[in-house]
Design a binder for these strands. Structure first.
Length: 546
RNA sequence: GGCCCCAUCGUCUAGCGGUCUAGGACAUCGGCCUCUCACGCCGAGAACAGGGGUUCGAGUCCCCUUGGGGUCACCA
């Protein structure tokens, strides 16, 4: 079943200036998101009298799902993939899957200098790691210059764009003046109606001839009705003086060309939307629906910034997607966490990928920005760690161990180690860290642990344990445990802890570890004996009698 | 600063006018389990920013204030 879609106002046909009184206060997709009903001046709200019919429609039409659902993620390869981008990609993928549509990857590399091949590869790697597979692409804007050029020509030819010969310096001066006078800077249209040919040979940029009549709002699938403020819209630049097309221009050309039906992107693009809508209309392209997602904020409440990575790292988060892999997060956890950040489905917290793809609805996306919470993220990761089979975990561990200087190969031993620590750690990196006890003998014994658990009779007990291990080995965990219990019964007042803790300290140097019997089994008989001997030699001997 | 957006526990959120003495999750604090540490289980504290309206009735609708955020390029 297809979800109710956001449609253009059914009661507001082109030409109709007065919304009927029966106008629904609630719109199907989401409560509180009104269309014309909420207009500032009811009665003439959303119709603009049009000198140019092509450019005007009653209401911002949101063509719904009478065309195939196609969404896109369009990162620009200027650095690592930002977590905000990850979330945008996730929402797009989930939306596409839920709607049975296509997810397209487009690379916005029109920029000069700032783009690097390395960044692109890292973005692709991040997406692959997270299992965010694209159905088409990656398409690169740098391969589509001819398309932009011809579209620009057509706009120029029809008079909807014009050449502007103002120099960057002149414009900058005007901007500074406006700022000094506390005015909003807006291009003054100096070149709008220049006689043809007058400026031949001088460098120019191409500007969009912004229509005088604009719709008063557009409808956003997440944020609802967004007013359009004509004061803020000037004749913006479509192509730079070097001929390269600008972002706002490429986006529209590409989205239209690729048949994008829903533009799901970050909040920070809301401001661009009116310009883009007008460009769609100038071209006569069908407009997509827009959905602007609230941004992800850092713990300080402001938009995540790549520049503040150092601060974030101290708090356990990162702006870089791939960094979470280095920190030992599982891709399922990352997807679950970011999907759930700003989107919810009742009280559910854990979502399998299939569930997400089956449940995701734009109407369940919240309107306010959300702050990342590293604790919850870790908790989720811990959940997925526990859910992952030991052998699989063992396969992922070597890089994390290698980072600590412990070469290791996946195998039964590593699987056992993974099993021993997966409920004690929240990340793969933590598993590796805790597993160090299996890769090197303790270099010291925690003073606190010794003080608390190393008693006068400990050396004696340890000696008995040594004999026990020497006699029966360490492979039979339950049997060994039984033997320990008997030993405790006979020599330690029946308290297993009185035996176990000193042994634990001897073997691990610490008072905390996985089950002692599992630890011994993984260590192996020889190593256990070695460590017991060492402890016996270096820890305090029996207290003087009396 | 102009414009725009947002506002329920510390954080993520449920809530779509009465079922709210506001639910769940993370975190925190107790307890249980227990060879330690964890896991798990049980329990506790913790929120409708403030003020006006509308309504028989408002966390839910409207307005204002306050607070937070976003955006103001020949970047994307």
């Amino acid at each position: 079943m297809r979800p109710a879609s956001w449609r253009s106002c059914p009661s507001c046909p082109p030409g109709s200036a007065t919304p009927p009184s029966s106008w629904p206060r609630r719109w199907p997709q989401r409560s509180g998101r009104t269309c014309c009903a909420g207009a500032r001046s009811p009665g003439s709200a959303c119709t603009v009298d049009a000198p140019r019919p092509l450019l005007v429609r009653a209401c911002t039409e949101v063509p719904a799902m009478d065309r195939p659902v196609r969404v896109r993620f369009a990162p620009s390869p200027t650095g690592f993939l930002h977590v905000g981008g990850v979330r945008t990609a996730i929402f797009n993928v989930l939306f596409a899957r839920r709607q049975g549509g296509k997810f397209i990857l487009r690379i916005e590399d029109t920029d000069h200098e700032r783009n690097t091949e390395e960044a692109l590869q890292q973005i692709l790697e991040s997406l692959r790691w997270l299992g965010l597979a694209w159905d088409e692409g990656p398409l690169r804007q740098s391969d589509r210059k001819e398309l932009y050029r011809s579209r620009l020509e057509s706009l120029l030819a029809s008079g909807q764009a014009y050449r502007c010969y103002c120099s960057a310096a002149e414009l900058e001066a005007k901007r500074q003046k406006a700022i000094a006078e506390k005015r909003t800077y807006k291009y003054d249209r100096t070149c709008r109606d220049l006689p043809a040919g007058a400026q031949d040979g001088r460098p120019y940029v191409v500007r969009f001839r912004m229509p005088d009549q604009l719709p008063d709002h557009f409808d956003d699938l997440i944020k609802g009705r967004i007013p359009i403020e004509p004061e803020n819209l000037d004749d913006w630049i479509l192509a730079r003086s070097d001929g390269s097309p600008t972002y706002n221009f490429c986006v529209v050309v590409d989205d239209a060309d690729m048949g994008i039906s829903h533009v799901i992107r970050g909040d920070d693009h809301v401001i661009n939307t009116p310009r883009q809508i007008m460009l769609y209309r100038a071209f006569g392209f069908p407009e997509p629906s827009f959905a602007h997602m609230p941004l992800v904020h850092g713990p300080d409440g402001s938009k995540l910034s790549k520049r503040r990575e150092a601060e974030y790292r101290a708090l356990g988060i990162s702006v870089s997607a791939l960094e979470y892999r280095a920190m030992g997060y599982l891709p399922q956890a990352v997807v679950n966490y970011f999907a759930r950040l700003g989107w919810s489905h009742g009280d559910q917290e854990i979502f399998s990928r299939a569930e997400l793809e089956g449940m995701f609805e734009l109407k369940d996306v919240g309107k306010s920005a959300s702050v990342m919470n590293p604790e919850k993220f870790k908790w989720l990761n811990a959940h997925y760690l526990k859910e992952t089979p030991d052998a699989e975990l063992a396969g992922m561990l070597p890089p994390y161990l290698a980072a600590l200087g412990f070469p290791a190969e996946p195998g039964p031993r590593l699987a056992r180690i993974a099993g021993a620590f997966k409920e004690r750690a929240k990340t793969l990196a933590e598993i590796a860290e805790q597993a160090r006890v299996f890769f090197e003998a303790p270099s010291a014994y925690e003073p606190k642990a010794v003080q608390k658990n190393w008693k006068a009779d400990s050396p004696g007990l340890l000696g008995r344990v040594r004999a026990l291990v020497a006699a029966r080995g360490v492979e039979d965990e339950p049997g060994l445990e039984q033997a320990f219990r008997e030993l405790a019964e006979a020599h330690a007042g029946g308290k297993l802890g009185a035996v176990a803790q000193p042994v634990r300290i001897a073997l691990t140097g610490s008072s905390a570890s996985p089950s002692l019997f599992l630890v011994m089994a993984i260590l192996g008989q020889d190593e256990v004996l070695r460590r017991l001997d060492r402890a016996l030699a270096s820890l305090p001997g029996p207290a003087p009698q009396g």
